[in-house]
Nucleic acid binder design. Structure first.
Length: 936
RNA sequence: GCCCGGGUGGUGGAAUAGGUAGACACGCAGGACUUAAAAUCCUGUGAACAGUAAUGUUCGUGCGGGUUCGAUUCCCGCCCCGGGUACCA
């Protein structure tokens, strides 16, 4: 009987669906294990062959863990809010909900064909009100929380107001935006609106005037990780800097915890490093520099990581956006400074990046050096960033390349502070050497000088030691339609108020078009029913707004990462109507044991989700501080494009290896018309009308195409659809082939050239069970040789799965099956365990054979066989090479040597003598006259 | 610039507490079965040289050094490729 995958696979997929084979519930007797994939955004293009790689790996792991007796949670869902659906809606008027639903259906259909063991009863969609209700709920909780630096956690905002009423804000240590100090009396004297505005500076979710990445083409702001090189990630439109009042999340408050948490989780070093860079912790000092003239009483506060270089300060530099600018500019310089600031803010980040010219303007003011008392000119330059540190720096041109460039350009003095350093051509940035020209720091190493300078600064009140982070608060408003609405309305003072939690979800309203309004308001400005009736506690018409009981609702929506920040928690308890996740469920599942997804989320989703989880941990909603214990990145599968070569000005195509003799233009050709780089000429002629009468110059009777590795995309005609592979070879072949392609975490091109080998393996495996059409498996006892093959395989596969080296597992299966075929082994005692071991990789074929063995329950409920070490020995000789690692020396002996001569031969060998170095060997093992192992 | 990865046959890739380099697969070549094709199976396949042959010798894991009886693996110095990040003071 032939291996008929097209019959077997749908049959078992249906069986699993009907019996809910992979439905998971809390089971006290089994240990829990949570295997999660990054849920997909369902795009209109559907899945290509690269998408399922991670899902295949996680599915194997999940199935394997089930066989090992774990209660496995393996859910799937959809990140359903996103820009493409909205863009499509703007163009076609089609409601994004409809396109999203269609796309989801298509994704589901494709996923089902690959035979994943997802528990679909737990599916979540971020655009489902029953789901985003909890996204809104978390936002409300963030709004009503502040971050306490003493306890290092989020606390209720009510605690803060109590402290303000009792003693003001002088002593409170909380993460906050810049806020003046006030007393209890001053707090009491403030109006409700003023109090609200102060509290806004402390909230974890707050409204702030922020410099945002504004994308005019998309009509919205973007997060830092949504902008690359000054262009939007989605669409590639230019992005400019602009100040806007936006919802923000105080992610920066969690910077230290986000950094420390990395040491407790099992992620790859490179991914942790990426996050560490992104968080960007740097230790330094904040130092006050008083002004020399009387323009302002206020001292300028600067941040530096090199307090040891303070004697080399020759000028100060302020960011153009800095608040200090207005305070220090002299009337004579006013006009020039204004012009510069205006020009600088107009230049967007992209322009600043592409042309890094040294620019700046003198303010007319001088600062007083806190140690020498010298007067130092204060300049403004756009190389100083307003958003980092204090937006002001002390410039030490001798030891900072940017300060150096500025000093050279404006001819400012340069004072070298390190003995023997040469600053004639460039600055000396290295943190090494002995200090000079530095008063009390002279003679110290840089490291000692930093410590001593810090000590002095703190002791004399010149400033304080300060840790800065590169990590910024997250911009949380988007001027879009297709996202979660904020559960917020604005009162008569224009201050935001949250909806009552029991009024959630606040559902996304209908609009007549998905574009911004004519006045530039976000699309929700078009909604007719988008006001909050606080008496009736319902949404109502905007026409009824009276600012007494009916108020306007927030018109922004939340960004893409909102819905993906806690979805893994919702899977634990998807039916819960009273909480995001119930305590019992969360206590049981705790955290994701294995998370598989792409590296591209390193500084986006994976930071935000960790932040979100830590916030919920502070609230006591979840019991684990880190959400993803182990994380594995699967590599991208690139496309392999094929080309045909048209001779210029003709309709004649020349085969690849002959093309150099002609003047040719390469054309992308659809890879689905090419097999092993050989073009299917008939299909090519039918592809486009202009190719119908094309002529070909062949080699060996074939047309050979050229190829190149490119991104898999429609325009390159190199998209391979998993459905086509499943139809041609079956899902089991697809699954095993994707893994066989190479190590999971490596990027590699999709190349069907090797798929036949994997398919052949499955056919060979199938044939072990049949003689003719009859399923013939004997009950005879297995031979030691057969058991050796089996147990070696069990051991290999087990260690491979634990280490995610699935590609070598596939090879191990091939070897085992080849060996068993050679031995003509069709014994149940060997093939039954083999089938269990293979089932995570190729579940359909194994399920079919499992049933033929006479089992009535799915193979998913079998037990993974134990590996019996006694069979992993060679010919009754202890063979320690691979298994106990005690081998210290090996030598190859000539074949055909008599066993008795082997030991003497080895011991007389000069190389061996050098190895032994006078010692007597404990054991000399000769195996089949080939290899000698000597254990000293 | 800085920080991570990584360079192994015609191809994808195995093998590192130092010990038979190239597992497994693709491709290619030859053969068996077949009227033929498909399918299946067998043999060979890093390079060079020698030999009718079995086989032998030499060279070979990006380049140049080093440590070692022995290096793809460890150390030093380069070159190249991929990823992250970038006026972050």
């Amino acid at each position: 009987m032939d291996y008929n995958f097209s019959e077997i696979e749908p049959k078992w997929q249906q069986y699993w669906a009907e019996r809910h084979t992979f439905k998971t519930d809390i089971e006290g007797t089994k240990p829990p294990f949570y295997v999660l994939d990054m849920f997909p955004y369902p795009s209109g293009a559907g899945l290509h062959v690269g998408h399922p790689l991670g899902y295949i790996a996680s599915d194997i792991y999940a199935r394997y863990k089930r066989l090992c007796g774990f209660n496995v949670l393996h859910p799937m869902g959809y990140d359903a809010y996103g820009l493409p659906a909205e863009q499509y809606a703007i163009q076609t008027g089609q409601h994004p909900e409809i396109t999203t639903k269609n796309n989801i259906d298509r994704y589901r259909e494709q996923l089902d064909k690959i035979g994943f063991s997802f528990d679909w009863s737990r599916e979540v969609r971020t655009s489902d009100p029953a789901y985003y209700r909890w996204t809104q709920w978390a936002f409300i909780r963030m709004f009503h929380s502040y971050y306490c630096r003493d306890t290092q956690q989020a606390r209720p905002i009510a605690e803060l107001t109590a402290v303000f009423a009792a003693e003001g804000n002088g002593r409170i240590r909380a993460a906050c935006s810049e806020t003046p100090v006030f007393t209890a009396n001053e707090w009491a004297a403030k109006s409700s609106r003023e109090q609200q505005e102060i509290l806004m500076n402390y909230r974890v979710a707050y409204l702030g005037d922020t410099i945002v990445n504004w994308c005019a083409a998309l009509g919205t702001v973007l997060a830092n990780d949504e902008v690359v090189n000054g262009l939007s990630v989605r669409g590639g439109y230019p992005v400019t800097q602009r100040v806007m009042r936006q919802w923000c999340l105080r992610v920066s408050a969690y910077a230290e915890r986000l950094l420390l948490g990395l040491d407790t989780i099992d992620w790859t070093e490179s991914l942790k490093e990426t996050q560490r860079n992104w968080i960007g912790r740097s230790e330094g000092a904040e130092i006050y520099f008083p002004l020399a003239n009387n323009l302002s009483q206020q001292n300028m506060l600067i941040f530096t990581t090199r307090p040891d270089t303070i004697f080399g300060v020759t000028f100060m530099a302020l960011a153009p956006e800095s608040d200090y600018v207005a305070q220090v500019v002299t009337p004579e310089q006013q006009a020039e400074v204004e012009a510069y600031v205006k020009a600088a803010t107009k230049r967007n980040e992209r322009e600043r990046m592409t042309d890094r010219q040294v620019t700046g303007v003198f303010t007319g003011s001088y600062a007083v050096h806190p140690l020498t008392g010298e007067e130092i000119p204060v300049w403004i330059s756009d190389y100083v960033l307003a958003g980092y540190g204090t937006g002001a720096i002390m410039a030490v041109p001798a030891h900072d390349s940017r300060d150096y460039a500025f000093a050279r350009h404006f001819d400012l003095p340069i004072i070298p502070l390190i003995e023997g350093c040469d600053v004639s051509g460039e600055s000396f940035d290295a943190r090494e050497g002995i200090m000079q020209n530095s008063g009390f720091l002279n003679g110290l190493t840089v490291k000692e000088a930093i410590a001593k300078a810090n000590e002095h600064i703190e002791a004399s009140g010149l400033g304080r030691i300060k840790v800065n982070y590169r990590l910024r608060d997250a911009a949380f408003s988007r001027q879009r339609y297709w996202g979660e609405p904020f559960p917020v309305y604005y009162d008569a003072d224009g201050m935001p108020q949250t909806l009552p939690e029991d009024a959630l979800p606040l559902e996304l309203p209908d609009v007549d078009a998905f574009l911004p309004t004519e006045t530039g308001e976000p699309p929700l400005g078009r909604a007719v029913r988008w006001a909050w009736d606080s008496d009736a506690r319902t949404v109502t018409d905007t026409a009824r707004i009276d600012y007494k009981t009916v108020f306007p609702l927030e018109r922004n929506t939340m960004p893409g990462f909102a819905g993906s920040s806690a979805y893994y928690l919702r899977y634990m308890d998807p039916e819960n109507h009273t909480a995001l996740v119930g305590h019992a469920s969360n206590d049981y599942w705790r955290a994701v044991n294995l998370y598989i997804g792409g590296t591209e989320h390193a500084t986006g989703h994976l930071i935000y989700a960790r932040f979100w989880n830590k916030f919920l941990y502070d609230l006591g909603v979840v019991c684990e501080d880190e959400p993803f214990r182990k994380l594995v990145n699967q590599g991208m599968i690139q496309g392999r494009s094929n080309f045909v070569y048209r001779i210029r000005h003709t309709n004649t195509f020349v085969s690849c290896r002959l093309k150099d003799s002609y003047d040719v233009t390469p054309l992308h050709v659809d890879v689905n018309m090419v097999d092993n780089d050989v073009l299917d000429i008939a299909r090519f002629k039918a592809w486009r009308p202009e190719f119908a009468d094309a002529e070909f110059i062949l080699e060996d009777g074939q047309y050979l195409c050229g190829w190149a590795i490119e991104k898999m995309s429609k325009s390159m005609y190199n998209v391979v659809n998993p459905d086509d592979i499943v139809a041609k070879y079956g899902a089991d072949t697809l699954r095993m082939y994707e893994l066989f392609l190479g190590p999971l975490e490596l990027s590699k091109p999709w190349d069907t050239n090797g798929i036949d080998g994997v398919h052949r393996f499955l056919k060979k495996y199938w044939r072990l069970f049949f003689t003719g059409d009859a399923f013939t498996v004997s009950d005879k006892a297995a031979t030691p040789q057969e058991l050796k093959i089996l147990h070696r395989l069990i051991k290999k596969v087990q260690t491979d799965i634990e280490h995610f080296s699935f590609n070598t597992s596939v090879s191990a299966f091939m070897i085992a099956v080849n060996e068993l075929t050679e031995l003509k082994c069709s014994k149940r005692s060997v093939l039954e365990p083999l089938t269990i071991v293979l089932s995570p990789f190729a579940p359909h074929i194994c399920e079919e054979l499992w049933a033929l063995f006479g089992h009535t329950e799915s193979i998913a409920h079998a037990a993974f066989p134990d590996c019996d070490e006694q069979y992993i020995v060679e010919n009754n000789v202890e063979y320690p090479v691979s298994f106990n690692g005690k081998v210290r020396f090996r030598k190859v002996l000539p074949l055909g040597m008599a066993a008795a001569d082997m030991e003497a031969s080895v011991l007389n060998d000069p190389q061996t003598a050098k190895y032994l170095n006078g010692k007597t060997p404990k054991k000399v093992i000769a195996v089949q006259g080939k290899i000698i192992n000597i254990v000293v």
